[in-house]
């Protein structure tokens, strides 16, 4: 039992997509641009050459925000979407009927259809692969060249993530929606 979350030192991100590849290889995710559990959001640069605004060009690594108050879970008619014992938002593919309510409800666009099972898929924090093997890192965290992510137990005050969140300023995406994400972006 833990309450897993992730802190993202997003300014480190160089948009290399190592995380995306590691995720796909670890979790057997299908290829295809629209089939990803994690991604890097890119803002197209503002300005006219050569006067470009560097600050307008940012890389925002993203994935399921693992909300404590997840809209996807609320709308699921078959209870396919559930919180597991570690607070991770999961999908039970046996129960999923692909009504796609959850895909519409997710404010972060973090869900997609796995064409093999024809059910909804999303980031699981590597729950059924790495965590199931007793590891304490996700594939995306472990491989990152610039070490953007820190994964850990939010309930453990001694964990690296708890210390980071205590000592560094951070924000959540679309906090105004009250979804209470467990992904925190460090500033």
């Amino acid at each position: 039992m833990a309450r897993y979350g992730m802190a993202l030192d997003y300014k480190n991100c160089i948009n290399c997509k190592a995380c995306e590849v590691a995720c796909k290889e670890e979790n057997g995710v299908l290829l295809g641009a629209d089939k990803h559990r994690i991604w890097v959001g890119v803002n197209e640069i503002e300005g006219v050459w050569p006067n470009l605004s560097i600050s307008s060009s940012s890389f925002l690594p993203s994935q399921c925000q693992q909300c404590d108050n997840a809209p996807c879970e609320e709308v699921c008619p078959t209870h396919a979407t559930y919180y597991d014992e570690n607070g991770v938002v999961r999908v039970d593919s046996d129960k999923c009927i692909l009504c796609s309510y959850c895909m519409n409800a997710c404010p972060y666009d973090a869900r997609y259809v796995d064409d093999r099972t024809v059910t909804v898929d999303k980031c699981t924090f590597c729950s059924d692969t790495r965590l199931a093997r007793g590891l304490t890192t996700t594939a995306c965290q472990n491989t990152c060249p610039t070490k953007v992510r820190t994964f850990g137990d939010l309930d453990d005050p001694e964990s690296e993530i708890s210390i980071l969140l205590k000592t560094r300023d951070h924000f959540s995406l679309k906090a105004n929606l009250g979804t209470e994400p467990k992904l925190f972006y460090l500033t």
Partner: peptide, 9 residues
């Protein structure tokens, strides 16, 4: 048999 292979436990 597939392009990516989910790791096992």
């Amino acid at each position: 048999k597939t392009v990516t292979t989910k790791t096992g436990t």
